[in-house]
């Protein structure tokens, strides 16, 4: 942080001013002139919160994707299929048992198993052949999509939100003052906050696991140079299987989350594959903090875009990607 400020004082100043403005926008009561210029504060706050919570979902999908890429240099283009499959498992479990939490566990385990099978049966056979792996994963994603269409049909599935999570809660953020002087607080869907909190917890847990544990150390060493790591006697294939299982399982969990606050249907697999590609390209391939930053940026861009420039909302995310590719092609937080 301090080094960044020393090296790029101008950028650091801009960043600090931007953060200050954002904080003011969130906490201050907007003067009437501002409300007239850019609309009500409630809309702005909602868009910001939605962007961040949507970012939480994107992070769940993209973190598995980036983890697998970072360690195995394997662009798994079937990652979207794992997301959708996790969602369908979650739907089946939650309608069968009525338990929302159980559906997360089963989806994680189920999709992680698929990941293990993929790693052992497919990727181990073509290790180090990037292009071949990429082509095979494209093929697999098409096969998976058709299999899921066959089993689940083209319907929309929605995982039932548990009753205690339905409805809005009041946040201690004042959006306006009524003429009687009574403050109006922001009401926000509880389920999105819970899901965001869960993805933060998962993100921190992953960071801790990678940076504070022995397995994490091995994984990080593998990211840097897997040949040397293998030469030191680490059973690298086992590490690969574990990481692939974790990455796939995270996609499965994300599927349940996505099925809860959006919906599941054919086509969602490619949408989330695209989203996680954009997120990791912006954040930096192979970097977990990069995936988090990229996910928040893309989530905010989508939501603020859909409110303030609805016509061009779709373009904004890709504009960001193009900008990042032009100015910092390795991604915002990539190490190299």
């Amino acid at each position: 942080m301090a080094r960044f400020i020393e090296r790029h004082p101008a950028w650091a100043l801009i960043a600090i001013v931007a953060i200050a403005v954002l904080l003011w926008l969130v906490f201050a009561i907007w003067p009437p002139g501002l409300e007239q210029a850019i609309g009500r504060k409630r809309v702005f706050l909602n868009a910001v919160f939605n962007g961040i919570t949507l970012g939480g979902l994107y992070f769940l999908v993209a973190s598995g994707f980036t983890l697998i890429f970072g360690l195995m240099r394997n662009v798994n283009l079937a990652h979207g299929s794992l997301y959708l499959f996790g969602g369908y498992i979650g739907y089946a479990i939650s309608t069968w048992t009525g338990s929302w939490l159980l559906s997360f566990i089963v989806a994680f385990i189920g999709v992680a198993l698929v990941g293990v099978i993929l790693q052992i049966v497919v990727f181990r056979r073509m290790e180090g052949q990037d292009l071949r792996q990429t082509m095979v994963t494209i093929g697999l994603s098409i096969v998976f999509a058709d299999l899921m269409l066959w089993v689940f049909g083209g319907d929309f599935y929605q995982i039932q939100t548990p009753a205690w999570l339905i409805g809005p809660i009041q946040l201690p953020l004042v959006t306006a003052i009524k003429s009687s002087g009574e403050p109006v607080y922001l009401g926000y869907p509880l389920v999105r906050l819970v899901i965001f909190a869960a993805s933060v917890v998962i993100g921190i847990a992953m960071w801790l696991a990678l940076n504070r544990t022995r397995v994490g150390m091995i994984v990080r060493a593998g990211v840097d140079d897997r040949d040397i790591l293998a030469a030191t006697g680490v059973r690298i294939q086992l590490v690969f299987v574990l990481v692939f299982a974790l990455g796939a399982g995270l996609a499965g969990i994300a599927g349940v989350v996505g099925g809860t606050f959006q919906s599941l249907s054919p086509g969602e697999d490619t949408r989330f594959l695209l989203a996680s590609l954009v997120v990791v390209i912006v954040g930096g391939m192979g970097s977990i903090p990069g995936a988090a930053l990229g996910a928040i940026i893309i989530g905010l861009a989508e939501q603020l875009g859909s409110v303030y420039i609805p016509t061009y909302a779709i373009v904004v995310t890709f504009l960001i990607m193009v900008l990042v590719l032009a100015l910092r092609p390795q991604g915002l937080l990539a190490r190299r």
Binding site: N50, S263, V307, P310
Partner: peptide
């Protein structure tokens, strides 16, 4: 909203509250 929008949360927040009814011209997913 673009066809194929998944996350409507911000759109919902931007709905005006001083109207008698809201007309929805959406379909499918």
């Amino acid at each position: 909203v673009p066809l194929g929008t998944k996350d409507f949360a911000s759109v919902i927040a931007a709905l005006p509250d001083d109207v008698d009814a809201i007309y929805l011209g959406l379909g499918g997913a």
